[in-house]
Simulated assay, not measured.
Amino acid sequence: MKGFHLMTVRVSLYLIGLIGLMMSSMTVQAEDGTLAVANNFYGPIQMLVDDFAKVSGYQLSVSTGSSGQLYAQIINGAPFDLFFAADTARPEKLVNQGLGFEQFVYARGVLVLWSKEANYDVKEHMLLGDYNHFAIADPKLAPYGLAAQQALRKMGLWESMTPKIVMGKGLNPTYQFLSTGNAQLGMVAKSQVFKNGQYIGGSVWEVPVSDYEAIEQAAVTLKSGIDKAAIDAFLEYYSSERAQKIVSSFGYLQ
């Protein structure tokens, strides 16, 4: 019985130590944060989060989707700390609903017409209707999809193109239509096909910014992110020249 009692004590001490380790891990995790990021900004945010970890030691996780999808998740209680939308409307709604705080414009987006084919006159093929499918993001969910719709209407093409248009729920699915060849042409964010200051492949035409409403993208701190050290540190980091160079390298306007 004495041996059994000793074993029980050892097991109890082990469990206490294990619980202590778990609590320590939870404390470290509490200093971290979770970002909800619109599809178009997913590439830049990955680079920013990695660089931020190097200079701060904080580890941030990222969830991505269309602005509409992420907004719906937030109002339904998703535990995000900071929301990077592709518009200003949804962050403003969150502020008005008492769910968001400290809204600010973090980038201005650019819409491009793109094909995975090299040396391809994308504008000419669009004007001639020389394609089977044309991809855009759903205008109801994604601001870049709305911008594409506005541009096509201004060019007088929307009605004739509608039967050939395929819509992604966000920019990532839209890009997949194009990269797999299921759509020959489409409109996506410049940041999806532009990295380190240059286009990374395919053929592109930058849609004139006068053809669509300015894509001002706003970020907003959410309830769980208020007074969280990692989020405060990331916001300070984001305003630095170091971070802004990364953002500019993806083709965003300042």
Results as ranks from 00 to 15, higher is better:
3 G>W: 13
4 F>N: 11
4 F>L: 13
4 F>Y: 13
6 L>I: 15
7 M>L: 14
7 M>D: 12
7 M>T: 14
12 S>F: 13
12 S>V: 13
12 S>G: 10
14 Y>H: 07
15 L>S: 09
16 I>F: 04
21 L>A: 15
22 M>S: 11
30 A>P: 05
34 T>C: 07
36 A>I: 01
40 N>Y: 08
41 F>L: 09
41 F>V: 06
42 Y>E: 11
43 G>W: 10
44 P>F: 05
44 P>Y: 08
49 V>P: 01
50 D>E: 15
51 D>V: 05
54 K>Q: 15
56 S>M: 09
57 G>D: 04
60 L>Q: 04
67 S>M: 05
73 Q>V: 01
74 I>G: 00
76 N>V: 01
76 N>R: 14
76 N>F: 07
77 G>M: 07
77 G>I: 09
78 A>L: 06
84 F>C: 01
90 R>T: 14
93 K>G: 02
94 L>G: 05
95 V>Q: 13
95 V>G: 03
98 G>P: 01
104 F>D: 10
108 R>I: 12
113 L>S: 06
115 S>K: 11
118 A>M: 08
119 N>I: 02
127 L>C: 06
136 I>M: 08
140 K>C: 05
142 A>P: 01
147 A>C: 07
148 A>G: 04
151 A>C: 04
152 L>A: 12
157 L>C: 02
165 I>W: 02
167 M>H: 00
167 M>G: 00
171 L>V: 11
173 P>R: 11
173 P>I: 12
173 P>K: 09
178 L>E: 00
180 T>F: 07
180 T>Q: 14
180 T>H: 11
189 A>H: 03
193 V>I: 15
194 F>C: 04
194 F>S: 04
197 G>A: 09
199 Y>L: 03
203 S>H: 09
208 P>V: 10
210 S>Q: 13
212 Y>L: 10
213 E>V: 05
220 V>P: 03
224 S>I: 05
232 D>V: 09
233 A>Y: 08
236 E>D: 15
237 Y>P: 00
238 Y>M: 12
238 Y>E: 04
239 S>H: 15
240 S>A: 06
240 S>E: 06
241 E>Y: 03
242 R>G: 02
242 R>S: 08
243 A>C: 04
244 Q>T: 06
245 K>W: 01
250 F>E: 06
252 Y>H: 07
254 Q>P: 04
